[in-house]
Each structure stands twice: as structure tokens, then as C-alpha cells.
């Protein structure tokens, strides 16, 4: 008896509490920047593709929904993906790819609205994934840290590098 009254009281008391229902989609909920939603590929501060096609995201992916192929740009020597494909119909938004990415290229965004009538429309190619900006990491540029040279950044010109040594010299 007491239990039923207590239940009634609890239910009725909610009449005077704030409504928890969110009027989605008219009203968008707040998403933290670190929310794990739709995946994007970002660009370096200089506007070039950040992805170097190292394949770490693909191997970290627990559902194996990322496939890509490395190629190299003739004119400047940068590695980049010839194609980069994410099958979002398989993706579980776990964020392992973002954690694995050594160049901050692949990032998860707060956009969680991924709905399609056709499953094949859930397959995103590089043109769908690549954005124009740097995403969450505005300053990082992998090629300025790496030792491999690209056009415009020779040996010894990366961060924390001495100028190239001379193999023919034994001077200290």
C-alpha cells in the first residue's frame, strides 16, 4: 500500500519538474568537440592533405571499414592516399582511427546525423571525407616534423634538425 502511494507521488511530482524532452531536430543538442561522430580528413595549415596514407587507421579499425592505397606526388614527394574509403555502414564510431593517426589527419566530428535510404550511400570516398581546414589541431604539420624531405623542405630544414652532415669530413 505504502509502495503504491510512494510511486504515485514520485510520478506526480514530475508534473512540476523541468521537461527533459529535446525538440530534435528543431532544437540541436550540444555536442562536445570531442564527440565521436562522422569522420573527416583534414588538411595541413598550408592547405595540403594531411593524410600520408600510412595505413595505421585502417589497421586500428576494429571493423576494418577503412581502405586506402598509398601513392606519391611526383612534383613534391608527399605521400598521400590514391583513394581513401570509409564504409560508414560498418563504422562503429569508436575513434580508434583518430587515436592511431600520426598526422592528425583523420578526426571524428560531432556530426552524428548519418542516415541514408541506400546503404551504398554510406560509403564515403576521399572527396566526401576531405575538408578544407585543419579540424581540431590548427598548428600541426607532420611534414615539418618528419625527416623525409618534400619539395620546399630539404634535409635539415625540419623542426629540430641540424643541417646535413658531410660524409667526407672528419672534422668535429
Amino acid at each position: 500500500m505504502l509502495s503504491q502511494i510512494r510511486t504515485l507521488w514520485t510520478v506526480l511530482s514530475h508534473t512540476f519538474k523541468r521537461n527533459e524532452t529535446v525538440q530534435y531536430p528543431e532544437e540541436m543538442p550540444y555536442q562536445a568537440p570531442r564527440y565521436r561522430g562522422r569522420i573527416i580528413l583534414t588538411r595541413d595549415p598550408d592547405g595540403e592533405e594531411r593524410c600520408v596514407a600510412c595505413n595505421l587507421c585502417a589497421v586500428a579499425c576494429p571493423v576494418d571499414c577503412i581502405a586506402l592505397q598509398k601513392t606519391e606526388r611526383e612534383e613534391d614527394g608527399r605521400w598521400y592516399p590514391e583513394f581513401f574509403r570509409i564504409n560508414f555502414s560498418r563504422c562503429i564510431m569508436c575513434g580508434m582511427c583518430e587515436e592511431a593517426c600520426p598526422t592528425y589527419a583523420i578526426q571524428l566530428t560531432p556530426d552524428f546525423e548519418l542516415c541514408e535510404y541506400e546503404r551504398s550511400n554510406m560509403v564515403y570516398e576521399k572527396e566526401h571525407l576531405l575538408i578544407q581546414g585543419t579540424g581540431k589541431y590548427p598548428d600541426y604539420s607532420f611534414w615539418q616534423v618528419a625527416g623525409k624531405t618534400i619539395e620546399g623542405k630539404g634535409k635539415g630544414e625540419a623542426q629540430q634538425e641540424q643541417s646535413p652532415s658531410d660524409p667526407r669530413s672528419n672534422l668535429p
Binding site: N55, A58, D64, I66, L68, R85, N87, R119
Partner: peptide, 12 residues
């Protein structure tokens, strides 16, 4: 890697 994406451009 890539088992569920390699050929996803042809069929999902």
C-alpha cells in the same frame, strides 16, 4: 585491414 571497405565502392 579494410575487409569491409576494400570493395565497398562496387557493393556494400
Amino acid at each position: 585491414s579494410g575487409r569491409t571497405a576494400m570493395y565497398a565502392d562496387e557493393t556494400v
